[in-house]
Amino acid sequence: MSSTLPPVPAASQSPAETIVEAIRRNLPHVPFAEGQTATDTDLAVAPEHLLALVTGLKTRKELAFDFLRNIAGVDMEAEGLVCKYQLYSFKHGHALQITVACPPDNPRLPSLTGLYAAADWHEREAAEMFGLIFEGHPNPKNLLLEEDLRIHPLLKAHPLQKVEILQGIEEGPPGFKF
């Protein structure tokens, strides 16, 4: 029954190889490691090379990744924070994921707001949720959380609990006391 389903489009290998090759050809000075997720090609770069890589990806005509889809922070606990960028090229129809692993004690990344206006809110969200620091962000305020709240709820260490308890405003678990 499932044999009549159309083939899954994004996982095909041949165009993915050409993306990586094209990137290597166009940006020889940027070191990165390639990988593959279930949907996209994945490039792993160090934080200091991120800006060079993304600038090249956006400006080179053969690459033309003009659309920043998404920025997702991930807390890998002992290995530190990781930031994932999903890019897309309207010109070529290529999708790409960039993985930037920060060192555990230094969650600093360059901000992409100069290249993509879309990065603004995504970076603010990742910053408040994980404590990532995007250097050069024009408006590094909290977005979804309260403005003066300095907690990072999506860290694995953060308990599943009311914020008021963590801040000491309320005591004990929520709910009625019987």
Binding site: T37, A38, D40, R69, N70, Q86
Partner: peptide
């Protein structure tokens, strides 16, 4: 183990789910 960024056309635009 697995990682994906699934996107589909939601009603307002690209509704993407990054899953790890």
């Amino acid at each position: 183990n697995g990682e994906c960024y699934v996107r589909n056309e939601g009603t307002k635009g690209e509704y993407g789910v990054y899953a790890l």
